[in-house]
Simulated scan of single mutants.
Amino acid sequence: MDEDMLDIAEVAERSGLAPSALRFYEQKGLISAAGRNGLRRRYDPATVDRLALVTSARNAGFTLAEIAELLSAKPADSALRERLQAKAADLEERIAQLALMRDSLLHASVCLHDPLVDCPDFWRFVRSARPRPPA
């Protein structure tokens, strides 16, 4: 079974993360080595999927503490479920803002106004993309 294990260099290559990031994530409890082969850490291949989740969550704005909590979540953790729902709502708002910004940039790429920033349609998109104050 040890032949299925990946060393730290293989996990780094497959995940796109530096070995130092893997050691840092291990120190934070987000991943764990299954053992060592000499001085090199060895990981279960599922670690690559776990790192994809960590990377995705980081890109979505999760803190390392939030990721650690998510990775250790149990079905009965209703407080965590509420926080995850709130995080999902925040992401929905960010997605909407990013979509509007994307639309403004796409419009600017074909707009004939000179200069581009004088275009009222461009500003309509930009104004729509502003974050809304909390209710």
Score class of each variant (00 low, 15 high):
residue 130 R to N: 01
residue 88 A to C: 07
residue 87 K to F: 09
residue 45 P to K: 04
residue 101 M to N: 06
residue 52 A to W: 05
residue 88 A to Y: 02
residue 90 D to R: 14
residue 28 K to V: 02
residue 113 H to E: 15
residue 45 P to Q: 08
residue 44 D to L: 05
residue 58 R to C: 02
residue 5 M to C: 04
residue 19 P to E: 12
residue 70 L to E: 03
residue 4 D to A: 10
residue 85 Q to V: 06
residue 98 L to Y: 06
residue 82 E to C: 01
residue 78 S to H: 11
residue 21 A to R: 12
residue 2 D to F: 00
residue 108 A to P: 08
residue 29 G to E: 10
residue 65 A to V: 11
residue 134 P to D: 13
residue 100 L to A: 11
residue 119 C to I: 03
residue 54 V to H: 10
residue 99 A to Y: 01
residue 121 D to A: 12
residue 24 F to V: 02
residue 115 P to M: 05
residue 7 D to P: 10
residue 106 L to H: 10
residue 3 E to C: 00
residue 43 Y to T: 08
residue 43 Y to E: 10
residue 5 M to K: 08
residue 81 R to F: 06
residue 100 L to K: 13
residue 24 F to I: 02
residue 55 T to V: 14
residue 105 L to G: 01
residue 128 S to C: 03
residue 19 P to R: 11
residue 130 R to V: 04
residue 107 H to E: 09
residue 110 V to G: 14
residue 31 I to Q: 09
residue 51 L to T: 06
residue 123 W to I: 01
residue 83 R to Q: 14
residue 73 A to W: 07
residue 103 D to P: 03
residue 85 Q to I: 06
residue 16 G to E: 10
residue 128 S to A: 15
residue 71 L to K: 09
residue 82 E to V: 07
residue 73 A to F: 02
residue 109 S to H: 11
residue 97 Q to W: 02
residue 44 D to C: 00
residue 101 M to T: 13
residue 39 L to S: 13
residue 5 M to A: 12
residue 7 D to C: 10
residue 112 L to V: 07
residue 47 T to A: 14
residue 1 M to T: 08
residue 79 A to K: 13
residue 61 G to N: 10
residue 77 D to Q: 12
